[in-house]
Every structure is written in C-alpha cells, then in structure tokens.
Design a protein around this nucleic acid. Structure first.
Length: 158
DNA sequence: AATCGTCGTTCTT
DNA sequence: AAGAACGACGATT
C-alpha cells in the first residue's frame, strides 16, 4: 500500500495480522505483493492509522497510535529487541548495548545491531534511535543520511 | 588503528 | 543437525 508523505511515498505491507513491513521511498520492495496498483480494502483502518503515525514520526513526534504489528515471521530475540525499541521515547537515544540489555542479553550488543538491521518497520519502530556507544551513529537500513535527519528532527543529536 | 571478546542469525556442509 | 562465517558493537591495547 502506498503511503504518501512530505518526504516521498512509503510502501506499507499488511497481512491479516497487521502491519508487516514499511519501505522508504525509492526502495526496491522485497515483498512481491507490493505491486498493488489499486488500494486494497482497509477494513480495520490500519492504512489511515499508519499514515497518521508515519506523518508524526517523520515530523519528529512520537505517534500516539500504531496499527497492530505483525512480527509473526521472526525470531524471539528480534521481537524482544524491537519491543524494546518501541519503549524509547522520541528525542532520546539508546546504545546498542543498552538495547541488548533491555532485551535480556546484556552482552549481545552486536547481535542487537543485527536485529535493528532486520527491523521490517523502520521509523515506526524506531531503530534510528539506537546509536553506537562511542558516539558514532551506527548504520541504517535506508542509509545513514535518513538516520541523521530523523534524529535531527527529534532534536536528539548525540 | 588494530585486535579480541561476544552472540544471535544465516549460510554451509 | 552441526559448525563456520558474519556483522548497524564494545572494550582494550
């Protein structure tokens, strides 16, 4: 489903269980179902919730409402990491180590990085608020430029 | 700057 | 099924 924003058109993928993926503008979709040219039915209003949430997130505010997220297709560790990400307030950052600890594996900082990279729903589940311990930005799936911009809009430049 | 410890995931046997 | 390789890390030297 196409979600137009001030920063371009994002693509959201829904399953019967909820929002399963979100892609930045101009990104080749790993999902085959992304080729929808006509908007599919939206019985739950998830699309409009997502549109609003994304607009707020891109403006540097925390979305007050999220659609249900479909994390069924992943491992438990990653779910715990992403769950931890949702607890980070807008305008704040955490280190990869802190996120790992929050997920119950205090020494798995590196693995936590892997989990962030595998996050199918960037921005809404804020993987961009996770930075390196040494003050470095760390990486970002859609390119470091996006990460910097997002943090800047939240006024959270470390 | 180079190295080593660490650990979940993914890729190879 | 088991082992090796690979990072969006972190701490040490």
């Amino acid at each position: 489903v196409a979600i137009p924003t001030a920063d371009g058109t994002f693509m959201a993928h829904f399953t019967p269980r909820g929002l399963a993926g979100l892609e930045f503008p101009g990104q080749a979709s790993p999902h085959p179902a992304a080729a929808w040219h006509t908007p599919p039915p939206d019985p739950h209003g998830w699309v409009s919730i997502t549109r609003t949430a994304l607009a707020r997130a891109l403006a540097g505010q925390s979305p007050d409402r999220l659609p249900p997220l479909d994390w069924s297709r992943t491992t438990s560790f990653r779910r715990r990491v992403w769950q931890a990400l949702l607890q980070i307030p807008a305008g704040q950052t955490r280190t990869y180590a802190a996120v790992a600890a929050e997920a119950g594996r205090p020494r798995a900082a590196r693995a936590a990085g892997g989990a962030c990279g595998a996050n199918p729903i960037p921005v809404l589940v804020p993987c961009h608020r996770v930075v390196a311990a040494g003050g470095g930005l760390g990486g970002f799936s859609a390119g470091p430029a996006w990460k910097a911009v997002l943090l800047q809009r939240e006024k959270a430049c470390p």
